[in-house]
């Protein structure tokens, strides 16, 4: 006759095990989301761009307002250019963008907007003056707009159609004014 009493296992309490596994699961989800986001690239053509507000530098306005909401620009093709005064490639395209803006400004169907990415205001103003940029420009405060577009650097330019849908993304500087005009004309023709 043998006694068959089950040995009682004394280990980590079940509630601690649950907490540990739950914490690990949450941690892994956070890491996975971070990795996914970092590998995602910029927003893609075809994406609907949600509304954002850009407050301009002093001296710049759009329809006499010191700021603009993307939603106010429905019906126009929006060219959103991210730049910075410390960015040398931005200088290559600054004059091209201004020239292109001048050729579409009177028509009213196209609007150029400059978003100054992590910059210092005196240098940014110097840059705008140096290249004679006249289209509305403002700092991307808190990098909120650039974070939405998930930009990887500057310059990057986003072409948004009249319905607020992204049509084209230019990573890096434009090589000519004709290149900019070709993209805009294609979107206008749609």
């Amino acid at each position: 006759m043998t006694e068959t009493s089950q040995p009682v296992r004394k280990g980590v309490p079940i509630w601690i095990q649950v907490i540990v596994w739950a914490a690990l699961a949450v941690l892994m989800v956070i890491v996975a989301l971070g990795l996914k986001r970092s590998q995602q690239g910029t927003v893609a053509p075809g994406d609907k761009i949600p509304d954002f507000t850009l407050t301009f530098f002093d001296g710049y306005t759009y329809q006499n307002q010191p700021q603009v909401n993307l939603s106010d620009l429905r019906g126009k093709v929006v060219i959103l250019n991210f730049w910075a005064s410390w960015c040398k490639p931005c200088e290559e395209e600054a004059a091209l963008l201004e020239a292109a803006w001048k050729s579409y400004e009177a028509d009213g169907k196209v609007i150029f907007i400059g978003a100054d990415y992590v910059d210092t205001e005196p240098e940014a103003r110097g840059y705008l003056a140096k290249f004679g940029i006249t289209y509305p420009n403002g700092p991307d405060l808190g990098t909120k707009i650039s974070q939405f577009f998930r930009i990887k650097g500057v310059p990057e330019t986003y072409f948004i159609d009249a319905n607020g849908v992204l049509q084209y993304v230019q990573i890096g500087p434009f090589s000519s004014e004709a290149q900019i005009r070709q993209i805009i004309d294609t979107i206008l023709a749609q």
Binding site: M1, T2, E3, S5, P7, K10
Partner: peptide, 14 residues
């Protein structure tokens, strides 16, 4: 653990 000791004691008494 005391439980293991108890089991061994139990075996001796059988």
């Amino acid at each position: 653990t005391p439980d293991v000791a108890q089991v061994s004691v139990g075996l001796e008494t059988t």
